[in-house]
Design a protein around this nucleic acid. Structure first.
Lengths: 123, 123
DNA sequence: CTGCATCCCGTGGGATACTG
DNA sequence: CAGTATCCCACGGGATGCAG
């Protein structure tokens, strides 16, 4: 169980990566340029955006097309694999939204239980 | 898009957390004790396992039941919410396994393209 | 415009030792 | 047995500045 070579350990996409998912969303309905991605992704620095794009490109989720022009123009687009991943993530997102209320309720209950425990200790 | 209060940002579960997913797997077919979790999760330290379990408990994914005995006994079990998340993660895992070959191929192609670019620059 | 270089920092996660 | 207490480090990610 959970051995070294386990395929689950090799799970390719780190949807934990802070911006990867948002990039997929931004590319969902068509190719976008580097600067077009920076707009909706408020707060992302060029360095981090580049890293994210490189990782997605490396894993075959997006393509990078550089046009030899001045000023430079580069377009990023989803591959079939990327679209497949996007669909997967969409399902995850729907799960999250559907269950968010329960999670929030659980957190509140947890906090309350803690507070009660503290009261009991103090009293 | 991607505003502050966006529910997607509040996505409750960090499946990126290194051990959280494995814990769910370990609890999938019944409650387990702390020490019973440490066995399959080779390499996890008690501190980190505790942190992971606390986070899952806080979010309502698992329950923690402490029996007042000597020696101490504590059992962790999935909640309905946890089982739901487990099912979600199972789907993610199946996607990953199904698409792993493609990702690996993409990585190799990416490396080859890089090597070729270097050769071109040098020559 | 599209990045790369550099520096920096918080935090997730690990090692080790100790306790009720 | 089931943790807690400390210490520590790598690394993801951010800020800033520069270059082709």
């Amino acid at each position: 169980m959970f051995a070294e070579g386990c395929p689950s350990s090799a799970v390719p996409i780190r949807i934990g990566e802070k911006w990867a998912g948002m990039v997929l969303v931004c590319l969902a309905d068509g190719p976008r340029r580097f600067s077009e991605l920076k707009v909706p992704l408020r707060g992302v620095t060029p360095k981090v955006l580049t890293e994210t794009l490189r990782a997605l490109e490396r894993d075959g989720m997006i393509t990078r097309t550089a046009y030899d022009e001045m000023p430079p123009r580069v377009e990023y687009a989803l591959t079939d694999l990327g679209r497949s991943l996007f669909a997967m993530m969409h399902a995850c997102r729907e799960w999250a939204e559907a269950n968010l209320p329960d999670v929030l309720a659980a957190r509140e209950a947890y906090l309350d239980a803690q507070a009660e425990a503290r009261t009991r200790d103090a009293g």
